[in-house]
């Protein structure tokens, strides 16, 4: 299929992009890597009036450090992420999840920010961002910037805190350095399929005790979710199969996953428990 006709803008700076978005009329779609947007447009499930293509906005691409944070430009591609030395050192959970996104060709085009702004609950990166308490830096009309925490960024199915006229500029995540173990445990039927359920876990050990735990759930509701009960059960607990298994049993608490041809809700909840156990065990080095 061929997308419906649209007006096209290809800004080279954030300011130009904001202007293009503002000038784009009622129905503007911001295109990052386009790897989800173009197929949807080809199927004519989306037919925006204007597409603002960010691929030439070079200032949005790249990873830098700022104190205890990693700052990831929204147009950093998945491939960039996988090659980045700062990510390799401080962003292993992001790297693990990114490796599972689609396939190499898609990862060459698809972007970190695009995947987050698309906010598909079956996407792999939203749950990671949520688990890491990422901060979303958003530029608005005129260039004003605001920062939204991940917990407030993912509003609903394919819906974020991004308002009309706004642009996701960068994502700040805490560096997870020494002492942290991570695991992205993804479950799908075939390799290139979207997650049926996945669990992002980061665990910091202090000796034989779990000092911190961050657990995000992919595709367990209309937004990515934190497995708060599991996190609370883990913190301060001994690192043992028993404690991890007991904690993971709470992974599906409060979730309302969908039923579709890959899985019905009760099975998704079961998977969340099993995969959380596996992810935490791996992250904790068990």
């Amino acid at each position: 299929m061929i997308p419906a006709a649209f007006a096209y803008a290809r800004p080279t700076t954030v300011d130009e992009a904001l202007s293009a978005i503002a000038a784009g009329g009622e129905d503007v779609k911001i295109m990052a890597g386009g790897q989800s947007l173009i197929p949807v447009m080809r199927l004519r499930l989306a037919a925006p009036e204007t597409v603002v293509d960010l691929t030439k906005v070079t200032e949005l691409r790249g990873v830098r450090e700022d104190g205890d944070s990693l700052v990831i430009g929204s147009m950093t591609t998945h491939s960039d992420i996988l090659r980045d030395p700062l990510i390799a050192r401080y962003g292993k959970l992001i790297a693990e999840a990114t490796e599972t996104v689609a396939d190499p060709a898609v990862r060459h085009r698809g972007t970190f920010g695009g995947a987050l702004a698309h906010a598909d609950p079956a996407g792999d990166l939203p749950a990671v961002a949520l688990a890491l308490d990422a901060e979303f830096v958003i530029a608005g009309p005129g260039g004003a910037r605001r920062s939204v925490p991940a917990a407030a960024f993912f509003v609903d199915y394919l819906t974020t805190a991004l308002e009309d006229g706004e642009l996701l500029v960068e994502i700040r995540v805490p560096k997870l350095g020494e002492g942290w173990g991570v695991r992205y445990e993804k479950f799908n039927r075939v390799a290139q399929a979207w997650s049926i359920v996945a669990v992002a876990a980061a665990v910091r050990r202090e000796g034989s005790t779990i000092a911190e735990a961050r657990i995000g759930l992919t595709n367990m509701g209309s937004t990515p979710l934190r497995a708060t009960a599991v996190e609370q059960a883990l913190v301060g607990a001994d690192v043992s199969l028993e404690t991890v298994t007991a904690a993971a049993a709470q992974a599906a608490e409060g979730t309302e996953p969908s039923s579709d041809l890959n899985a019905q809700a009760d099975y998704r909840q079961h998977l969340a428990r099993v995969l959380t156990g596996r992810a935490v065990r791996a992250a904790a080095g068990l």
């Binding site: 199927l43 499930l45 598909d120 609950p121 399929a193 969908s258 579709d260 890959n262």
Partner: peptide, 29 residues
Amino acid sequence: TPERVWRAIHQGGDGGARAAEGSNAYGGA
């Protein structure tokens, strides 16, 4: 499907019919 195999093991039966709703990828294309 993993779901059917799991149901057959843990709930008996032949795994049952799958939900007919499409996955939510691409906005449920």
